[in-house]
Design a protein around this nucleic acid. Structure first.
Lengths: 247, 247
DNA sequence: ATGATGAACTGACATAGAGCAGGATGCCGC
DNA sequence: GCGGCATCCTGCTCTATGTCAGTTCATCAT
């Protein structure tokens, strides 16, 4: 029953065929379920972390602060995503992460993840794949910041978020529920909050998309995609070189 | 004899203690040494790739093109770095990569990398670590583009590059030899080539750094670091949770 | 020498987006 | 009900950066 699987299992299974043994070991990732209030800091930059999290419900974000107090959000996490995976391999974490809404997450010990590599190499590949997919999203985000205008960034960001959410069964082609504030958008898109507001107004007036009352609506998705030069292929890639586990 | 090891082995060994067995398997990564002329495209966006490369000599860069012909360079590769590692896990590559100078690189079959995970889980961890380190650099780059001014971006980029090169024994605190053109700098920093030129002039006039004749000189590294808010910790992280291989 | 090319460099002008300053609205605690 | 706070929204000004349209310089082939 697919619906009984955790979002992480569903995500990994979509790309790597996991054996029953693999699934047993993966199940260990989900022992200690915890819940956190909005704003709770799960990972702190510069701190050492012996565990990561797998998000089950709600939204989180990972970010870096600059000395002048500015913040750059690197990515948002939705159910099925790892939080702080990178930080378990480093002596100290290179970023912070906090809950954007009230969230539920499984805490996974670093040793559980690393030990699982020895027992289930296929799982190691799956985790490397998940990390690579995250990196691909960061890369796309980087291109966004480096080479697109504010309007284009907004369009691209919203389309990508919508596509990611649809992968885990949330929202549809007309839009999605979105707990972010305009300050979040400013911090993720490298803009000022003031300018985010103007961009949103502009896109609304142009009939492209609406961001209001905790909901994103795609009003003219074709023109929106054209504006963003949106090509979501990297959200949907994998499993080319792995034979089925029984093979 | 450390000097006989490949740059990759040196890099991984600095963070994960590899056993002689691990090193044997790692040696398989270096069977087919190839060399490529300046400008050769090693990885092509949208194409399927059954192998990656480990750079032994020279510089390469990975980048993405936008439909309007603009280019965003995501990262430069120096000896010891993987080229196209991410693309072997995806059905099609999400980025391109080309040689910035004449280069020498070992071609590694995807199957060799993935098979090695089953035989040497410690190596899987090492490769995951290397991928995480790359991602940390991309994240830092993203913060650069999102939240820093042109001057700050340039300062930060050059300091980071200098630090990375020193890790593989190239250059020193006074500067390094650099084959990049101002167009490369524009494409990596998300600026126009014209503005790159102005920024370089400004930094030179301020006595902070000089970029000329294929050489970067740090003229006042303390002030340069202050300008860039440069904190190179993520270049130097790892090995916290892995016991020695004999333990 | 001649022309061809590509990189470095510059000035004049245009504009996207930041910064500032403040108003409107809705929500929560009391 | 009322004050406080966060969020959303707007007009004005200013500056960092892009765009255009070149010039200079070094290198290279002929």
């Amino acid at each position: 029953m697919l619906t009984l699987l955790s979002p992480l299992t569903r995500k990994l299974s979509a790309y790597v065929a996991l054996s029953p043994g693999d699934l047993d070991i993966l199940a260990r990732f989900h022992k200690r379920r915890r819940s956190f209030r909005l704003g709770h800091e799960l990972v702190h930059e510069g701190q050492s972390h012996g565990s990561a999290f797998v998000l089950a419900k709600g939204w989180a974000c990972s970010y870096k602060m600059l000395p002048d107090g500015e913040r750059q959000i690197v990515d948002f996490q939705v159910p099925g995503d790892f939080i702080g995976l990178r930080s378990i391999l480093f002596r100290t974490s290179d970023h912070s992460a906090e809950a954007v809404t009230r969230i539920e997450a499984s805490e996974v010990l670093a040793s559980d993840i690393l030990d699982s590599f020895a027992q289930a190499p296929r799982l190691a590949t799956a985790v490397l794949w998940a990390a690579s997919r995250d990196e691909a999203m960061v890369v796309e985000h980087l291109v966004n910041l480096g080479r697109r205008s504010a309007d284009e960034r907004m369009a691209h960001f919203m389309l990508e978020l919508g596509a990611r959410l649809r992968l885990v069964g949330v929202g549809d082609a007309t839009g999605f529920d979105c707990p972010l504030t305009q300050y979040h958008l400013a911090d993720v898109l490298g803009l000022s909050a003031v300018h985010v507001n103007r961009v949103l107004r502009h896109l609304r007036e142009e009939g492209l998309m609406t961001f209001q009352k905790g909901r994103v609506s795609f009003d003219d998705i074709a023109r929106l995609k054209q504006l963003a030069a949106f090509d979501p292929e990297y959200l949907d890639q994998g499993r080319p070189f792995l034979p089925a586990p029984g093979a």
